[in-house]
């Protein structure tokens, strides 16, 4: 009663008692969606940086002598190219290991015309024109083909982008639903306290006095719901990332949220409180305009 805000609304639990829980559930969903979008973003960044710093050159020539000659010529060219840190010919055993999932364990002298592979590591900031390099390679070694993983990478990026768009849509829908719930709750509150509001008006209270009372109420609802939702989401993310850590540094773990860098979660209760307070303020203000 004696705070800075003239709180004339009773604190007793009423129909708005469920509101913090509903806001909590909404924020839980919102947090998971945002965390997933962030995790996919960082996972894709890690994949693409790993893949763009490595390219492979295949020397596809059936005749073994010609293949060896072209491989050595290509290696010399690559080693002389600025921006390339290293270029190494993969041993036949490593090449056979790569094709073994499809062809089975074959002896090295099986007589299969398996291409020679040169694994190239680029400088991190190297801006190499892959197409031009390919043309120069083919001029030196006719059977050379560059694989910069772009086809695979672009499919992965498309998928990641689509998932991020879906997650963003989920976040927007959750925000809109939260706003709608607060509006309904606020209108119910206005109806419940209509008599008190009328008396306050008749005693000369300005709209802002009445709005402040509702602001304070909905600020508390938003904070309570926000903290609840973030705590639940934090526990879920922690459990998920713990499992991801157990999986090691594989493909799956790279898209799961990490325990680090989730400080932004702490801001979400404040965001929820801000959203509910502003929504309540606008709803109450608009309703009061219809009164005398």
């Amino acid at each position: 009663m004696w705070g800075r805000t003239l709180q004339f609304l009773p604190n007793a639990k009423d129909r708005e008692g469920l509101l913090p829980w509903v806001i909590g559930v909404m924020l839980f969903l919102c947090t998971l969606a945002v965390a997933s979008a962030f995790a996919i973003n960082s996972g894709v960044a890690r994949w693409s940086s790993g893949l763009t710093s490595n390219i492979t050159v295949q020397i596809i020539v059936a005749d073994e002598a010609a293949r060896t000659q072209q491989t050595e010529a290509a290696l010399r060219l690559l080693e002389a190219t600025p921006g390339i840190v290293s270029a190494e010919i993969l041993a036949s055993s490593e090449v056979m290991a790569l094709v073994s999932p499809w062809l089975g364990d074959l002896p090295l002298d099986a007589g299969l015309p398996v291409p020679n592979l040169i694994d190239i590591t680029l400088e991190p900031e190297a801006n190499i024109n892959i197409q031009a390099l390919g043309e120069r390679l083919r001029a030196t070694a006719a059977g050379a083909v560059i694989d910069d993983h772009q086809a695979w990478l672009s499919q992965i990026l498309d998928l990641a982008t689509m998932i991020q768009v879906i997650m963003t849509a989920v976040v927007f829908m959750v925000i809109l639903s939260t706003i709608a719930i607060v509006i309904f709750g606020c209108r119910a509150g206005l109806a419940t306290h209509a008599d008190s509001i009328e008396i306050m008006h008749l005693m000369g209270a300005e709209d802002r006095v009445i709005c402040h009372a509702f602001d304070l109420k909905y600020l508390k609802h938003g904070l309570k719901g926000g903290i609840l939702g973030v705590v639940l989401a934090g526990i879920t993310l922690w459990l998920t990332s713990s499992i991801a850590t157990d999986l090691g540094e594989g493909l799956v773990s790279s898209v799961l949220p990490s325990n680090n860098g989730n400080v932004w979660l702490l801001l979400l209760p404040l965001a929820a409180a801000g959203l509910t307070t502003i929504t309540a303020r606008l709803t109450v203000h608009r309703a009061l305009q219809d009164m005398m």
Binding site: L6, F8, A205
Partner: peptide, 30 residues
């Protein structure tokens, strides 16, 4: 409205406020 005092037949006091707080409301509004 602050220049008008109203006494309602059914009192219309705020049940969750004390006598002191009810009477103080118009002054606090001002």
């Amino acid at each position: 409205r602050r220049r008008i005092g109203i006494v309602f037949q059914d009192f219309r006091l705020f049940d969750h406020l004390t006598t002191f707080e009810n009477v103080a409301l118009p002054l606090r509004i001002k």
